[in-house]
Amino acid sequence: MAENIIFYGSSIALAAIGLLIALTRRNLIKIIIGLDLMETGVNMFLISIGYRRGGTAPIFDIPLSKAVDPVPQALVLTAIVIGVAVTALALTFAVRIHEKYGTLDISKLREMKW
């Protein structure tokens, strides 16, 4: 149970904190940081669901019973690359918005109202 809290709990908490930052902050850079935190939380969660007690990297020759689940690792690789791509694009948006509006506060852009 303690391990559940440490690994699952902390990664979910990290994702939740990132989500709250992304939804409540006004500054675009902080929002991007929030998105990244969320991404990291999800990646941590993915890695921890694939862990096997006493396991090691699934590179042979190791006994089969010691190999951790390889699929989440492959998924995390994909997720990280996608995260990098989104962050780079988001930062470019931030640069351009700062140029056009002279601010990074998204509530000042127009109205955030629906």
Binding site: M1, E3, Y8, I12, A16, I49, G50, R53, L64
Partner: peptide, 30 residues
């Protein structure tokens, strides 16, 4: 968000840490 996170935590804990469910991966490893 805290409530959803808690529900999610409970949901994930249905399978305790350290015992992954290898269904598809079993074939990959073997």
């Amino acid at each position: 968000v805290a409530f959803t996170g808690y529900v999610f935590f409970v949901a994930a804990s249905a399978r305790p840490f350290g015992s992954p469910r290898v269904v598809v991966s079993k074939r990959y490893l073997e």
